[in-house]
Amino acid sequence: MAAAVQTENVTVFEGGTAQISCRLQNYDGSIVVIQNPRRQTLFFNGTRALKDERFQMTLFTTRLVSVTLRNVSVSDEGGYFCLLYTDATHHQVAMLSVLVPTDTPAVEVKQEAVEGGESELTCVSPRSKPAATLKWMRNGKEISGTQNGKTFSVSSTIRFPVERKDNGAALSCEAFHPTLDVPKRVRHYRLEVYFAPTVKIVPPTGILREGDSLSLTCSVTGNPLPLNIQWSKINDTLPERAEITGLTFQISRLSQSHNGTYLCQAKNEYGLAADHYTLLHYINHLPTCHPNLHHPNAVVETHSPVPYAVIGGVLALLVFTIICVLIVTIWCSVRQKGSYLTHEASGLDEHGEVQEAFLNGNDASQGKKEYLL
Protein backbone atom coordinates (compact mmCIF):
# COMPACT_ATOMS: atom_id res chain seq x y z
CA MET A 1 0.00 0.00 0.00
CA ALA A 2 1.44 3.41 -1.03
CA ALA A 3 2.34 5.87 1.70
CA ALA A 4 -0.08 8.71 2.29
CA VAL A 5 2.76 11.26 1.81
CA GLN A 6 5.73 11.01 -0.55
CA THR A 7 8.68 13.41 -0.99
CA GLU A 8 11.83 13.69 -3.07
CA ASN A 9 15.27 14.92 -2.05
CA VAL A 10 16.41 18.17 -3.62
CA THR A 11 19.90 19.39 -4.52
CA VAL A 12 20.46 23.02 -5.50
CA PHE A 13 23.34 25.43 -5.92
CA GLU A 14 23.81 28.14 -3.35
CA GLY A 15 21.86 31.20 -4.43
CA GLY A 16 19.50 29.13 -6.57
CA THR A 17 15.81 28.19 -6.09
CA ALA A 18 14.72 24.93 -4.48
CA GLN A 19 11.33 23.33 -4.97
CA ILE A 20 10.08 21.10 -2.15
CA SER A 21 7.10 18.92 -3.09
CA CYS A 22 4.77 16.63 -1.13
CA ARG A 23 2.70 14.07 -3.07
CA LEU A 24 -0.55 13.08 -1.35
CA GLN A 25 -2.42 9.79 -1.64
CA ASN A 26 -6.20 9.72 -1.09
CA TYR A 27 -6.26 13.23 0.29
CA ASP A 28 -9.56 13.88 2.02
CA GLY A 29 -9.08 17.53 2.95
CA SER A 30 -7.11 16.84 6.10
CA ILE A 31 -4.60 19.29 7.43
CA VAL A 32 -1.24 19.54 5.60
CA VAL A 33 1.73 21.15 7.36
CA ILE A 34 5.17 22.04 5.90
CA GLN A 35 8.02 22.48 8.39
CA ASN A 36 11.67 23.53 7.99
CA PRO A 37 14.68 21.61 9.41
CA ARG A 38 14.27 23.44 12.72
CA ARG A 39 10.67 22.16 12.89
CA GLN A 40 9.26 25.60 12.43
CA THR A 41 5.94 25.58 10.53
CA LEU A 42 6.20 27.26 7.17
CA PHE A 43 2.68 26.66 5.87
CA PHE A 44 -0.47 25.41 7.49
CA ASN A 45 -2.95 24.17 4.85
CA GLY A 46 -1.54 26.67 2.36
CA THR A 47 -1.47 29.59 4.77
CA ARG A 48 1.89 31.18 5.59
CA ALA A 49 2.93 30.61 9.16
CA LEU A 50 6.56 31.84 9.12
CA LYS A 51 7.43 35.31 7.92
CA ASP A 52 10.16 34.44 5.47
CA GLU A 53 9.32 35.87 2.09
CA ARG A 54 11.77 33.56 0.37
CA PHE A 55 9.28 30.70 0.85
CA GLN A 56 6.28 30.69 -1.45
CA MET A 57 3.40 28.24 -1.73
CA THR A 58 3.27 27.62 -5.46
CA LEU A 59 0.81 24.71 -5.60
CA PHE A 60 -1.78 23.19 -3.26
CA THR A 61 -4.00 20.45 -4.72
CA THR A 62 -5.43 17.17 -3.54
CA ARG A 63 -2.44 15.40 -5.12
CA LEU A 64 0.50 17.78 -4.80
CA VAL A 65 1.67 20.47 -2.45
CA SER A 66 4.68 22.45 -3.65
CA VAL A 67 6.76 25.13 -1.90
CA THR A 68 9.64 27.09 -3.48
CA LEU A 69 12.60 28.59 -1.66
CA ARG A 70 14.48 31.39 -3.42
CA ASN A 71 18.08 32.48 -2.87
CA VAL A 72 19.02 29.29 -1.10
CA SER A 73 21.92 29.45 1.38
CA VAL A 74 23.86 26.73 3.11
CA SER A 75 21.97 27.46 6.32
CA ASP A 76 18.75 26.31 4.57
CA GLU A 77 20.15 22.83 4.12
CA GLY A 78 18.47 19.96 5.94
CA GLY A 79 15.25 17.95 6.11
CA TYR A 80 11.86 19.54 5.27
CA PHE A 81 8.84 17.79 6.77
CA CYS A 82 5.56 17.13 4.97
CA LEU A 83 2.91 16.17 7.54
CA LEU A 84 -0.62 14.94 6.78
CA TYR A 85 -2.97 14.83 9.74
CA THR A 86 -5.71 12.24 9.22
CA ASP A 87 -6.85 9.61 11.68
CA ALA A 88 -3.13 9.01 12.01
CA THR A 89 -0.25 11.39 11.39
CA HIS A 90 1.68 10.71 8.18
CA HIS A 91 4.93 12.46 7.33
CA GLN A 92 7.90 12.27 5.01
CA VAL A 93 11.15 14.26 4.94
CA ALA A 94 12.57 15.91 1.80
CA MET A 95 16.33 16.43 2.18
CA LEU A 96 17.61 19.72 0.78
CA SER A 97 21.31 19.69 -0.15
CA VAL A 98 23.09 22.93 -1.05
CA LEU A 99 26.17 22.88 -3.27
CA VAL A 100 28.79 25.63 -3.13
CA PRO A 101 31.03 25.73 -6.22
CA THR A 102 34.60 26.73 -5.53
CA ASP A 103 35.89 30.04 -6.76
CA THR A 104 39.37 30.49 -8.18
CA PRO A 105 41.62 29.80 -5.20
CA ALA A 106 43.84 32.46 -3.65
CA VAL A 107 47.52 32.19 -2.78
CA GLU A 108 48.65 33.52 0.57
CA VAL A 109 52.32 34.08 1.40
CA LYS A 110 52.86 32.76 4.89
CA GLN A 111 56.63 33.25 4.90
CA GLU A 112 58.66 35.54 2.67
CA ALA A 113 61.06 33.69 0.39
CA VAL A 114 64.64 34.73 1.18
CA GLU A 115 67.68 33.09 -0.39
CA GLY A 116 68.88 30.25 1.81
CA GLY A 117 65.61 30.15 3.73
CA GLU A 118 62.25 28.45 3.24
CA SER A 119 59.15 29.58 1.42
CA GLU A 120 55.68 28.84 2.76
CA LEU A 121 52.68 29.30 0.50
CA THR A 122 49.06 28.45 1.19
CA CYS A 123 46.42 27.93 -1.47
CA VAL A 124 42.95 28.75 -0.15
CA SER A 125 39.52 27.90 -1.51
CA PRO A 126 37.45 29.95 0.94
CA ARG A 127 34.06 28.39 0.24
CA SER A 128 33.18 25.11 -1.38
CA LYS A 129 30.72 22.32 -0.66
CA PRO A 130 31.55 19.56 -0.88
CA ALA A 131 35.18 20.40 -0.17
CA ALA A 132 37.25 21.32 -3.20
CA THR A 133 40.35 19.29 -3.97
CA LEU A 134 43.46 21.47 -4.17
CA LYS A 135 46.64 20.63 -6.02
CA TRP A 136 49.94 22.55 -6.28
CA MET A 137 51.85 22.51 -9.55
CA ARG A 138 55.31 23.77 -10.51
CA ASN A 139 56.49 23.71 -14.11
CA GLY A 140 53.84 21.11 -14.90
CA LYS A 141 54.79 18.83 -12.00
CA GLU A 142 52.72 18.32 -8.88
CA ILE A 143 54.09 19.45 -5.52
CA SER A 144 52.75 17.67 -2.49
CA GLY A 145 50.98 19.87 0.02
CA THR A 146 49.04 19.49 3.25
CA GLN A 147 45.28 19.95 2.76
CA ASN A 148 43.07 21.10 5.61
CA GLY A 149 39.29 21.46 5.83
CA LYS A 150 36.38 19.35 4.65
CA THR A 151 33.71 21.92 3.94
CA PHE A 152 33.58 25.57 3.01
CA SER A 153 37.14 26.78 3.66
CA VAL A 154 39.81 24.47 2.30
CA SER A 155 43.54 25.16 2.21
CA SER A 156 46.69 23.48 1.01
CA THR A 157 50.13 24.54 2.29
CA ILE A 158 53.53 23.85 0.76
CA ARG A 159 56.99 24.51 2.21
CA PHE A 160 60.27 24.26 0.33
CA PRO A 161 63.81 25.73 0.47
CA VAL A 162 64.56 28.52 -1.98
CA GLU A 163 67.62 29.86 -3.77
CA ARG A 164 68.01 32.92 -5.94
CA LYS A 165 67.60 30.78 -9.04
CA ASP A 166 64.02 30.11 -7.88
CA ASN A 167 63.12 33.77 -8.28
CA GLY A 168 60.35 34.02 -10.86
CA ALA A 169 59.46 30.33 -10.71
CA ALA A 170 55.94 29.64 -12.01
CA LEU A 171 53.61 28.03 -9.49
CA SER A 172 49.90 27.33 -9.72
CA CYS A 173 47.15 26.10 -7.42
CA GLU A 174 44.38 24.06 -9.04
CA ALA A 175 40.95 23.58 -7.48
CA PHE A 176 38.71 20.68 -8.54
CA HIS A 177 35.02 20.47 -7.69
CA PRO A 178 32.16 18.31 -8.95
CA THR A 179 29.90 21.30 -9.49
CA LEU A 180 32.21 23.12 -11.88
CA ASP A 181 31.25 23.46 -15.51
CA VAL A 182 35.00 23.43 -16.32
CA PRO A 183 37.51 20.81 -15.15
CA LYS A 184 39.24 23.07 -12.67
CA ARG A 185 39.88 26.59 -11.52
CA VAL A 186 43.51 27.70 -11.48
CA ARG A 187 45.36 30.44 -9.64
CA HIS A 188 48.79 31.24 -11.06
CA TYR A 189 51.54 32.58 -8.83
CA ARG A 190 55.01 33.87 -9.63
CA LEU A 191 57.47 33.11 -6.83
CA GLU A 192 59.55 36.04 -5.65
CA VAL A 193 62.80 35.26 -3.86
CA TYR A 194 64.65 38.06 -2.10
CA PHE A 195 68.45 38.02 -2.05
CA ALA A 196 71.48 40.23 -1.42
CA PRO A 197 73.03 42.05 -4.38
CA THR A 198 75.99 40.94 -6.46
CA VAL A 199 78.31 43.47 -8.10
CA LYS A 200 80.70 43.06 -11.03
CA ILE A 201 82.66 45.82 -12.74
CA VAL A 202 82.87 45.37 -16.50
CA PRO A 203 86.34 46.68 -17.49
CA PRO A 204 87.26 48.21 -20.84
CA THR A 205 88.78 46.00 -23.50
CA GLY A 206 92.33 46.45 -24.68
CA ILE A 207 95.13 48.54 -23.20
CA LEU A 208 94.47 52.10 -22.17
CA ARG A 209 97.05 54.76 -22.91
CA GLU A 210 97.77 58.09 -21.38
CA GLY A 211 95.24 60.61 -22.62
CA ASP A 212 92.56 57.98 -23.29
CA SER A 213 89.19 57.90 -21.55
CA LEU A 214 88.34 55.24 -18.98
CA SER A 215 84.78 53.88 -18.88
CA LEU A 216 83.67 51.31 -16.27
CA THR A 217 80.21 49.74 -16.00
CA CYS A 218 78.93 48.36 -12.71
CA SER A 219 76.70 45.31 -13.31
CA VAL A 220 74.34 44.82 -10.35
CA THR A 221 71.81 42.12 -9.49
CA GLY A 222 69.68 41.64 -6.39
CA ASN A 223 66.09 41.48 -5.23
CA PRO A 224 65.00 44.08 -4.57
CA LEU A 225 67.35 45.68 -7.09
CA PRO A 226 69.58 48.24 -5.35
CA LEU A 227 68.64 51.78 -6.33
CA ASN A 228 71.74 53.54 -5.02
CA ILE A 229 75.06 52.64 -6.64
CA GLN A 230 78.13 54.26 -5.08
CA TRP A 231 81.49 54.81 -6.78
CA SER A 232 84.56 55.67 -4.72
CA LYS A 233 88.35 55.60 -4.84
CA ILE A 234 90.13 53.73 -2.08
CA ASN A 235 92.20 56.01 0.16
CA ASP A 236 91.50 59.00 -2.06
CA THR A 237 88.76 61.18 -3.51
CA LEU A 238 87.34 60.73 -6.98
CA PRO A 239 89.13 62.71 -9.70
CA GLU A 240 87.67 66.04 -10.73
CA ARG A 241 87.08 64.82 -14.27
CA ALA A 242 85.17 61.73 -13.09
CA GLU A 243 81.57 61.49 -14.31
CA ILE A 244 78.94 59.05 -13.03
CA THR A 245 75.90 58.34 -15.16
CA GLY A 246 73.67 55.61 -13.79
CA LEU A 247 75.86 52.51 -13.59
CA THR A 248 78.70 53.99 -15.66
CA PHE A 249 81.84 55.65 -14.31
CA GLN A 250 84.05 57.67 -16.69
CA ILE A 251 87.34 59.55 -16.56
CA SER A 252 88.51 61.59 -19.52
CA ARG A 253 92.17 62.20 -20.43
CA LEU A 254 93.90 59.66 -18.21
CA SER A 255 97.12 60.60 -16.45
CA GLN A 256 99.31 59.26 -13.66
CA SER A 257 97.24 61.09 -11.07
CA HIS A 258 94.34 58.73 -11.84
CA ASN A 259 96.23 55.67 -10.59
CA GLY A 260 94.46 53.75 -7.86
CA THR A 261 91.66 51.35 -7.04
CA TYR A 262 88.07 52.29 -7.83
CA LEU A 263 85.20 50.69 -5.96
CA CYS A 264 81.56 50.09 -6.93
CA GLN A 265 79.16 49.32 -4.05
CA ALA A 266 75.49 48.30 -4.01
CA LYS A 267 73.22 47.62 -1.04
CA ASN A 268 69.70 46.42 -0.34
CA GLU A 269 68.00 45.30 2.86
CA TYR A 270 69.46 41.81 2.51
CA GLY A 271 73.13 42.68 2.16
CA LEU A 272 76.00 44.72 0.71
CA ALA A 273 78.27 43.84 -2.22
CA ALA A 274 81.22 45.52 -3.93
CA ASP A 275 83.74 45.04 -6.71
CA HIS A 276 86.97 46.93 -7.45
CA TYR A 277 89.06 47.91 -10.45
CA THR A 278 92.73 48.86 -10.17
CA LEU A 279 94.20 51.31 -12.66
CA LEU A 280 98.00 50.92 -13.08
CA HIS A 281 100.19 53.52 -14.82
CA TYR A 282 103.55 52.38 -16.22
CA ILE A 283 106.09 55.16 -16.93
CA ASN A 284 108.31 52.87 -19.02
CA HIS A 285 106.96 51.75 -22.33
CA LEU A 286 106.54 48.00 -22.15
CA PRO A 287 105.99 45.70 -25.14
CA THR A 288 102.45 44.39 -25.43
CA CYS A 289 103.70 40.83 -24.94
CA HIS A 290 104.97 41.62 -21.44
CA PRO A 291 103.18 39.28 -18.99
CA ASN A 292 102.27 42.14 -16.66
CA LEU A 293 100.10 43.60 -19.38
CA HIS A 294 97.76 40.62 -19.14
CA HIS A 295 96.55 41.79 -15.75
CA PRO A 296 92.72 41.73 -15.70
CA ASN A 297 92.76 45.46 -14.99
CA ALA A 298 93.73 48.08 -17.51
CA VAL A 299 97.30 49.32 -17.86
CA VAL A 300 98.01 52.91 -18.76
CA GLU A 301 101.24 53.39 -20.71
CA THR A 302 103.10 56.67 -21.32
CA HIS A 303 104.63 57.34 -24.72
CA SER A 304 107.84 59.30 -25.55
CA PRO A 305 109.30 60.26 -28.98
CA VAL A 306 112.43 58.17 -28.13
CA PRO A 307 111.79 54.98 -26.19
CA TYR A 308 113.61 54.98 -22.86
CA ALA A 309 114.98 51.53 -23.52
CA VAL A 310 116.84 52.83 -26.64
CA ILE A 311 118.28 55.79 -24.72
CA GLY A 312 119.46 53.46 -21.96
CA GLY A 313 121.11 51.20 -24.50
CA VAL A 314 122.98 54.08 -26.18
CA LEU A 315 124.24 55.36 -22.82
CA ALA A 316 125.43 51.91 -21.83
CA LEU A 317 127.27 51.51 -25.14
CA LEU A 318 128.91 54.91 -24.74
CA VAL A 319 130.13 54.12 -21.22
CA PHE A 320 131.45 50.76 -22.37
CA THR A 321 133.35 52.43 -25.26
CA ILE A 322 134.95 54.99 -22.93
CA ILE A 323 136.07 52.26 -20.53
CA CYS A 324 137.56 50.25 -23.41
CA VAL A 325 139.48 53.31 -24.69
CA LEU A 326 140.90 53.97 -21.22
CA ILE A 327 142.00 50.37 -20.83
CA VAL A 328 143.73 50.36 -24.26
CA THR A 329 145.43 53.71 -23.54
CA ILE A 330 146.81 52.55 -20.21
CA TRP A 331 147.99 49.27 -21.69
CA CYS A 332 149.79 51.00 -24.59
CA SER A 333 151.44 53.46 -22.18
CA VAL A 334 152.78 50.64 -20.09
CA ARG A 335 154.10 48.83 -23.18
CA GLN A 336 155.86 51.97 -24.47
CA LYS A 337 157.62 52.65 -21.18
CA GLY A 338 158.82 49.09 -20.94
CA SER A 339 160.46 49.36 -24.40
CA TYR A 340 163.02 51.87 -22.98
CA LEU A 341 164.24 49.56 -20.36
CA THR A 342 167.41 47.58 -20.97
CA HIS A 343 168.20 44.20 -19.66
CA GLU A 344 171.86 45.25 -18.95
CA ALA A 345 172.19 45.71 -15.25
CA SER A 346 174.05 48.79 -14.06
CA GLY A 347 176.78 48.56 -11.35
CA LEU A 348 180.19 49.95 -10.23
CA ASP A 349 183.39 49.53 -12.24
CA GLU A 350 186.66 48.61 -10.67
CA HIS A 351 187.19 52.27 -9.89
CA GLY A 352 183.84 52.48 -8.06
CA GLU A 353 182.20 54.75 -10.67
CA VAL A 354 178.88 54.31 -12.29
CA GLN A 355 178.82 52.22 -15.41
CA GLU A 356 176.67 53.73 -18.18
CA ALA A 357 174.49 51.60 -20.45
CA PHE A 358 174.00 52.87 -23.99
CA LEU A 359 170.63 51.81 -25.43
CA ASN A 360 171.95 52.28 -28.98
CA GLY A 361 175.04 50.14 -28.47
CA ASN A 362 178.44 50.81 -26.93
CA ASP A 363 179.47 53.08 -29.76
CA ALA A 364 179.57 56.61 -28.47
CA SER A 365 179.74 57.90 -31.96
CA GLN A 366 176.04 57.21 -32.42
CA GLY A 367 175.22 60.19 -30.28
CA LYS A 368 174.87 61.39 -26.78
CA LYS A 369 171.40 59.98 -26.20
CA GLU A 370 171.68 58.26 -22.94
CA TYR A 371 169.16 57.38 -20.24
CA LEU A 372 170.10 56.65 -16.73
CA LEU A 373 168.25 53.70 -15.37
Rank of each mutant, 00 (worst) to 15 (best):
K51S: 13
P105G: 07
P197M: 06
H351D: 13
A309V: 15
G149L: 08
V220M: 01
R48G: 04
S97A: 10
V193Q: 03
N297P: 04
L254N: 06
T198W: 03
R209K: 03
F44S: 06
V354F: 13
G79D: 12
T179S: 09
G16R: 06
P296D: 05
T102D: 10
N362E: 15
N292L: 12
S215Y: 00
V306H: 06
T329Y: 14
C218A: 10
V328E: 10
P178H: 04
M57F: 01
F44Q: 07
A345N: 14
L227P: 02
T7V: 15
I234M: 07
G117C: 12
R164S: 06
A364T: 08
P226R: 03
L280H: 07
E77L: 06
G116Q: 13
G145T: 09
S333D: 11
S128K: 13
H281K: 05
T47C: 01
F152T: 05
N167K: 06
V186Y: 01
G352R: 13
I143Q: 11
F195N: 05
P37Q: 10
L191C: 00
W231R: 04
A175V: 01
S125P: 09
A169I: 03
E142V: 15
N45K: 03
M137L: 14
I31H: 12
D275H: 00
G211N: 08
I283R: 11
A242K: 02
T217C: 02
P226F: 00
E269L: 07
N9Q: 06
L247V: 04
T89P: 04
T245S: 07
E356T: 14
Q6N: 11
T7G: 08
C332Y: 10
F60R: 04
P224W: 01
E163N: 04
G206M: 03
L373K: 15
L326A: 10
L341V: 13
R54D: 09
S153C: 11
D212C: 02
D103R: 10
E192T: 09
K141V: 15
D87P: 05
T302Y: 12
N297L: 05
D236C: 00
S144V: 12
E14V: 13
F55K: 02
E350T: 09
L99D: 07
P226S: 02
N362H: 14
V193C: 04
Q92G: 07
K337T: 12
V32D: 08
T104E: 15
P203M: 02
L59P: 01
P224M: 05
V199T: 00
T61F: 08
S365E: 11
A113C: 08
D275S: 03
A2R: 08
E108F: 13
N9I: 04
K141C: 09
L247W: 07
G116A: 11
D166A: 10
N297C: 14
S213D: 03
Q336W: 12
A132K: 03
H177F: 03
L96W: 09
G352M: 09
